[in-house]
């Protein structure tokens, strides 16, 4: 099975979906001739031409709006936002329009669009190139929100997102793009949206997380294993709708739960995960639910001292795991 980087799996998913269905097209800033600033759409312009890989003006609200309108008329757009931070001008289109089209049209219309955006920090991008914005959309039923952690999941989930009959937000951790590599089957497969995945079986404590932090949790779990502590790692993969069944099962399995996100702690998606566990697992818990998250400040600063303080890393996860294991 070929081994490829996270970003190459994303490119491959788009290429395969565009070959499979000519209604699939890509639009965004610099996605065409340049192949995207991160090169996620590299090669697509040459293969599919300017009508299906559109270099748009610098106007995110229009990118979203145009994509939404095309989706309502039967096309299957993949709209790229260059950085998740730049999605803010498009929020009105996504929340007021895309998320509600099926609902408000009495199920007559739908809006099968994928909004892709690189998010996350640790790349010295400072205040406006590092943010996690998923929680903004997680409070808006009507949008599915997918955040893959591995190349395998990235390809399968993106293909599922393209085929989904409703709008999907697809967030890609920009630091994972070239850092994370893994096996990706050459054949056509999808990964079901809304399903979490056990990335490591364990007995003593449970870590529930998503995105790049999954890898930090797995690295930390290896270290704890050397000391005989067995860690169960659940990768959410989809943060809306949450896989409640998998969350409850993972929490009950060990009775000790650590939730990890790179987002700010307050109001993040792991607060909702904690609520699900609190509602369903009270008598199965052996310790208070723990949360490891970014600090509650508006954005990620630039100075390495502060960026390091903000970011999740294997050491922080390891410490939180050990504290919980000892509880």
């Amino acid at each position: 099975m070929p081994v490829m980087s996270y970003i190459n799996a994303i490119t491959l998913a788009m290429k395969e979906e565009m070959e499979r269905d000519e209604k699939v097209f890509v639009l965004g800033e610099d996605v065409g001739k340049k192949g995207g600033v991160f090169k996620a759409t590299a090669g697509l312009y040459d293969q599919f031409g300017e009508n299906r890989v559109i270099d748009t003006p610098l106007a995110e609200s229009a990118i979203a709006g145009v994509g939404i309108g095309a989706a309502m008329y039967g096309m299957k757009p993949i709209a790229e936002f260059q950085f998740a931070d730049f999605i803010m001008p498009a929020v009105n289109q996504i929340i007021s329009e895309a998320s509600r089209i099926r609902y408000r049209s009495n199920n007559d219309w739908s809006c099968p669009i994928v909004f892709r955006a690189p998010f996350g920090g640790g790349v010295h991008g400072a205040l406006y190139h590092s943010q996690s914005v998923e929680a903004v959309f997680a409070n808006q039923p009507g949008l599915k929100i997918v955040i893959p952690s591995t190349p395998y999941d990235a390809k399968g989930l993106l293909k599922a997102a393209v085929r989904d009959p409703d709008p999907v937000m697809f967030f890609e951790h920009k630091r994972a793009y070239r850092l994370i590599k893994g096996e990706v089957p050459e054949d056509d497969y999808t990964v079901e949206i809304g399903k979490a995945d056990v990335k490591r079986e364990g007995e003593d404590i449970t870590v529930i997380t998503y995105g790049l932090a999954v890898h930090f949790a797995l690295q930390a779990a290896e270290r704890l294993a050397e000391d005989g502590i067995s860690v169960h790692v659940l990768d959410l993969r989809t943060i809306y709708p949450l896989d409640k069944e998998a969350i409850i099962e993972a929490a009950k399995k060990t009775g000790k739960v650590l939730l990890v996100t790179e987002d700010n702690k307050e109001g993040s998606i792991i607060g909702e995960v904690a609520a699900i566990i609190a509602e369903n697992c009270l008598f199965d818990l052996d310790a208070p639910i723990q949360r490891l998250a970014g600090p509650d400040v508006p954005a990620m600063p630039y100075a390495p001292t502060m960026e390091k303080f903000f970011m999740i890393n294997p050491d922080k996860v390891e410490k939180a795991m050990r504290d919980l294991a000892e509880f």
């Binding site: 400072a126 205040l127 406006y128 190139h129 600063p301 630039y302 100075a303 390495p304 502060m306």
Partner: peptide, 17 residues
Amino acid sequence: LGTTEGTTRGLGAGIVH
């Protein structure tokens, strides 16, 4: 450089705000 000499005292550079 992300030092305290900056107008933002370390917050914003890269693309400086």
